[in-house]
Design a binder for these strands. Structure first.
Lengths: 316, 316
DNA sequence: CAGAGCGTCGCTCATATGAGCGACGTCTCC
DNA sequence: GGAGACGTCGCTCATATGAGCGACGCTCTG
């Protein structure tokens, strides 16, 4: 009580005690001796100091990580890992680069020599791979076929091969497109020894990285390369997000689609079996898709930027 | 070690732990349980957090008191009380008002019903008196005669009478000028019952307030009202400061002067006998005088403003 | 592959700290 | 002036915390 009617002498004394305790790291007993008071008095002065705002404690990271948003995101969705970087929200390519580098740092940190890494295709995953340091002999498994993007950078195959080359581990990869004209062809392709061998590795994958798309024009490479029929059908099925090829509704439940049967990629069940799946979304408009992905339970980690993180948390 | 090569996951975890500990006030044991780690790990994370600057603790007062300067001044000169207020250093009258109000608050805080208050004459003391709240029946003793200042505000008599009126305590005051033409007249005046009675109260004074002047033109009301001979003589004697009429050299030693014998005011010995003497200097140029006053051992408290405090501390 | 060097972890045990309490002094209102 | 309300102080005792240490695992090197 008595908020501001403490006298100046009291204020100066309290500040001195607080300095000794918080900045000089003395114990309360030492301070009590120095100032000739009981340790209880010191404790009460320190309580006062915090209550009245004389001592202010703030937690922030000197670098680009927004620790507060990161922790809130992690706690809000019960994630293992959340990393939110605070970068100016300019163009998509710049965001992708920043998010990719942050994801590379996270992956380098959490990966162990026992891990098997799975990589789904997404532009941010490709950006991450480029920034990835040498991993400790980690085997790398390709999780999805190559999307035909003429102007695109690396294909999923390139990414997997390059990461495995630098890690010195085995590369489980295959040459096949992500989407096929019909389910029969897709089934046939999955029988191919190369493809089958890569998919046999799926149960051993312990950590994986994937992208998140919003099922709208310009918000998902899969949407942008899909047919009008597919676009419409999935929209009618309530698809909100695609997690590197796994479709989920706004509430996070996976949505079975005919399109999925025509794809060479891991399915929802296989994705769920991966102990640690990190997604790397970017672009503020994707907030609904990210919410859906995080609600799905498929995802255990996220690396993204602050405006998107804020948009995700700002739901009503 | 490893300053910045901690991974993002580590940073976010450390920040979360630090938040729980410093902001939410959880114990380390609780945090350890919550995060599934040992309390030792929590302690190490918290040490890291402080070392790397993730947690920043700052101590500052939301009001006008500069707690850091105050404490430094107090510690540097071994004072009982030091209050430094941070106000724009504009004109003397404004400074005097601010310092006076701060001194009033300090006095109101430290005075007890058992105290006897002594007031020497100085413009800042007058300003303080005007801001003083009702004191608990405190007797007030006049410590120096009235300086003839036609345009001046209150005289020493007015100040003492007014403070005593509001405290409800006895007023020990007398009507006499501060300086007289010769020592004999001064001696005679001191014999006057009224004056003698007031000075008899001196040993009972437990707390007193005085001003500090620098022995230069415009830096001491005493200097400004003194004769040219007195000005020169005291300068030649090495007088640096006057503490409401008590002259001290730059190193703080009291300087006996012929002028003092012509004054109706307490002398150095009587001043030294006062357990708690607070001075209220203002004006950055007075720094040497303030240093001298604080070194003298006569003074146990100070109330001043930040630019002067800084100048005082910035000695080589 | 042995072994030194290094870092991390969680233990023991002494110490620091917090919660709660009764004693005391002060203030207020009859 | 007396009774109660209130605030402050420093105690006890249970708990939290820190210093120091040995065990373990990883890495590098011969």
């Amino acid at each position: 009580m008595a908020d501001q009617d403490r006298g100046p002498a009291q204020i100066v004394l309290t500040a001195s005690v607080a300095r000794r305790y918080y900045l000089d790291g003395r114990s309360k007993v030492e301070i009590a001796e120095e100032f000739g008071m009981s340790r209880f008095k010191v404790a009460r002065l320190l309580d006062d100091a915090r209550e009245t705002g004389l001592v202010r404690i703030e937690i922030r990271h000197p670098g680009e990580i927004d620790v507060d948003l990161s922790a809130r995101l992690r706690d809000r969705y019960g994630l293992q890992h959340a990393v939110v970087i605070d970068v100016p929200d300019d163009d998509a390519a710049s965001l992708r680069g920043h998010v990719g580098r942050a994801a590379a740092r996270l992956l380098a940190e959490i990966i162990t020599p026992q891990d098997v890494l799975g990589l789904a295709w997404a532009r941010a995953v490709s950006a991450m791979a480029r920034a990835l340091p040498a991993l400790p002999g980690t085997p790398v498994v390709q999780l999805s076929g190559a999307l035909s993007m003429p102007e695109g950078p690396d294909t999923s195959v390139d990414v997997v091969r390059e990461v495995a080359r630098r890690s010195g581990g085995a590369a489980h990869l295959f040459y096949a497109p992500l989407t096929l004209p019909d389910a029969a062809t897709a089934r046939a392709l999955r029988q191919q020894p190369e493809v089958a061998r890569a998919f046999d590795q799926l149960p051993s994958v312990t950590k994986a990285v994937a992208g998140v798309g919003l099922w709208e024009a310009g918000q998902s490479t899969l949407y942008d390369t899909a047919t009008d029929d597919d676009r419409r059908e999935l929209r009618e099925l309530g698809v909100c997000a695609d997690i590197s090829g796994v479709f989920v509704a706004g509430d996070g439940t996976p949505v079975p689609t005919e399109l999925a049967e025509r794809m060479i990629a891991l399915n929802a069940a296989q994705m769920r079996a991966i102990p640690e799946l990190v997604v790397v979304p970017y672009g503020t408009r994707k907030a609904p898709a990210v919410r859906a992905a995080l609600r799905s339970g498929l995802v255990s980690g996220i690396v993204t930027h602050s405006t998107l993180a804020r948009a995700v948390l700002d739901e009503l």
